[in-house]
């Protein structure tokens, strides 16, 4: 039987697995390693330290995750937060966190990498519930656990903030299966940004970014 709990620092290794797998988006590419010019091992260490800080306002905060457990085994997770609710955007918070670990010498290259992917960057809407790091371990896929976690997030956030009107998710347009699953779950595509710049696929698993959203 499944139980759903808020993430804690005890779940960090599973949360990191989820973040990396969601980043791969079915490919072998972990965007952060390419953008920040670091190894996956280094990224794992950085995520571990960032998650231990429990900083709200962006996806890498343990208590922003809901985790589904089968007995004691974590099988799926989804991170959710309300964008810019009491401070800077999640992008700036994430920048702050990664900046701490990066060498100053690597910054010009990192800035160039970020500029390369900028044409398909989509802004998150302040005040909207954001979903990220959606992941289910392979054996448990196809059982609707992610949808259950998303509904649970929506209910919890609506309870805390009845004014909440919108939930958003960003994904690569090439991830057709995921796009189709979210369409079935009532999301609609509200924005698309694409580019023909082949350098983008050095950093992201595709050339099109999609924003999907649903009224709640």
């Amino acid at each position: 039987m499944l139980t759903i709990k808020k993430g804690t620092v005890e779940d960090i290794s599973f949360l990191i697995e989820a973040i990396l797998e969601a980043e791969r988006s079915g490919t072998q590419l972990v965007s952060y390693t390419k953008i920040f010019c670091i190894s996956e091992e280094r990224l794992t260490d950085m995520l571990n330290e960032i998650l231990l800080e429990e900083i709200d306002g962006f996806e890498f905060c343990p208590s922003n995750f809901l985790v589904a457990f089968e007995e004691e085994l974590p099988v799926a997770t989804v991170s959710a937060w309300v964008e810019s609710v009491s401070g800077p955007s999640s992008g700036i918070i994430k920048s702050n966190m990664f900046f701490y670990f990066l060498s100053k010498a690597s910054l010009p290259q990192i800035e160039e990498n970020i500029r390369t992917i900028e044409p398909i960057n989509i802004q998150r809407a302040p005040g909207a519930l954001q979903l990220e790091s959606i992941y289910t371990i392979p054996l448990y896929r196809g059982r609707g656990i992610s949808a259950l976690l998303i509904d649970n997030h929506i209910q919890r956030h609506k309870q805390d903030n009845p004014e909440l009107r919108k939930v958003q998710i960003q994904l690569m347009g090439e991830n057709i299966r995921a796009v189709s699953a979210y369409l079935k779950a009532g999301f609609r595509v509200s924005e698309r940004k694409s580019s023909e710049d082949p350098r983008i696929v050095e950093f992201l698993p595709g050339l099109e970014r999609i924003l999907m959203e649903k009224e709640i």
Binding site: S84, S89, I92, F99, E111
Partner: peptide
């Protein structure tokens, strides 16, 4: 002053600013 008050204050310019 917050990031919302200044045009162009995004994750990229933020890296520059902090550095």
């Amino acid at each position: 002053t917050t990031a919302g008050d200044i045009d162009g204050w995004d994750s990229l310019t933020h890296l520059d600013l902090i550095s």
